[in-house]
Amino acid sequence: MVELLEVRRLVKHFPVRRGFLGRQTATVHAVDDVSFSLGENETLGLVGESGCGKSTTGFSILRLIEPTSGEVRFRGQNILALDKERMRGLRRHMQIVFQDPFGSLNPRLTVERIIEEPLLNYETIGGSGRRERVAEALELVGLLPEHMRRFPHEFSGGQRQRICVARALVLRPSLVVGDEPVSALDVSVRAQVLNLMVKLQRRLNLSYLFISHDLAVIRYVSHRVGVMYLGQIVELAEAKTLYARPLHPYTRALLSAVPVPDPRRGRTRILLKGDVPSPMNPPAGCRFHPRCPEMMPPCREHPPLMRIAAAGHIVRCHLYDGGEPWNPIPAACNGSAAQHSTAGGTL
């Protein structure tokens, strides 16, 4: 079966240039060997702390930034090999909702102009047909057709995020990347937008790549979850499994650190030492080893492989070296994979 989206060994390095001649002095390893797949009607959550590369992953998949290497297959087609024109044609099926509903809507345009813009770009329908589609999109997100004539500043944060969702959905895409779509919203409004996104997924057969730093939100909306640390996925499993039996020491620490709204809950919090190291100079061996409470000698030198620790549960940690290495490339597609560097040297 061909998944909607297959990401293999995605790498994005940003050069750091300094000085008068703009010589490259360092490299930011923003995304370093990320692989996952996303099925029809599925939500994959990517969770991690700031700088872990989760947003860069999302942007790379839409080619809003060009990945350094790797493969992104959308319905079996490697979109990184497409020319500009064909990529443009495909992009209507892949949309994005950003974190900040204030910054991502043009304040000078009416809601109608904002939402019809994708239609003008991709479809040849007349004014009345467009207006109908805009009204339909507004209705979908719980706004009224008469809101069309208003400007973004007349709406609250939650309503603006609904407008962003309407704009993303007006072309009837199959994939929506949500980059922290509810993080800027207050708790009570956040629930409205989350419920809306869940409802729309069922109704429109959408697949979501949901990116957030909020572990509870990710648990709530996702079927499967990938935990990222310093540019890599360190654990990937079904949401239920990952939260009930986290295997990677980082995931365990992260989950134990989330404040839980229950004052009676006794807890053993795993406190991580220090800060996340700079992605400019990630630690050798396992990237988590300087902060890992279960660090062993090999962790200093050898980067761990992604291994299958249990059915459907993939971990990048030497504690699970007994497991089979995980091959993110399904056998059927092996031959078609074009030349690609094994960047990061981990796979």
Partner: peptide, 17 residues
Amino acid sequence: SIPRADASFETDALNEI
């Protein structure tokens, strides 16, 4: 309206204000 630990859209509804 906050997702409780281990709440999922598949089993729990989130309250809206």
